[in-house]
Amino acid sequence: MSKIASGYDPAVGPRTTGTTTVIRPRSSIYDRNLHRARHDISVSSLSFLFMEMVSMNLNQAKSLIELERKLNNLGYSIGTKVLELASLRENFNNNLTSSGKSNVSKREIKVLDILHFITSVIWPSLFEKPADNLEKSSESNCQYMIIDNAPVLMKYISVPKEYEGLNCEAFVAGIVEGILDSTFFKCEVSAHTVPVEGHLGRTVYLINFDEELIARETQ
């Protein structure tokens, strides 16, 4: 067989360049089905990962407030992404149960609706359980509270006395803030430990909505 010259030969015209090797694409995360009926990961490895996140930021931060802010920022970037994925998966689930085939995600525009979406859809997709309670603050119109009696990430963590007031759940508060911000609910979220009898790790995620937003809501 003659050697195939490179480039276009006008005497021959267009031709194929020898044999082509079939490149098999390696299977990536994009090839997998988005819908998963059940998805389990080890709480143990999650705890180790979260432990490293906290201790790394603990070493870098100069104050506890800075540490909480760093954790909050980490969660924020996750929140913006997890919203998209969770609503897409939720949509799949709806399509499986009902005959109506619609792939259009509904975007929640009311404060209560989006908060309900977070406690009943986002929470199970992250922690395999819904949040325990959703409350409205009696003091302020702008404040809502999501309550988790036993946060998964705090399962093995006991905060020592010298770090009193620190709550590592600032990370989850960041996730909530990321979700609300990307759905155009301007707010600030902070996590507070409020222990009750039987639930020592009970955490309240305090959501402080922008006043303009509440005004928009009441129109």
């Binding site: 143990s44 705890s47 180790f48 432990m51 490293e52 093995y156 963590i157 006991s158 020592p160 020592l200």
Partner: peptide, 23 residues
């Protein structure tokens, strides 16, 4: 293993002061 080693505030080879471990 659970309540001491997975606690970000515990440093190896230091005295154990973890409330959850105690309980």
């Amino acid at each position: 293993c659970n309540y001491v080693l997975k606690n970000p505030f515990y440093q190896l080879d230091m005295p154990i002061r973890c409330q959850l471990f105690d309980t």
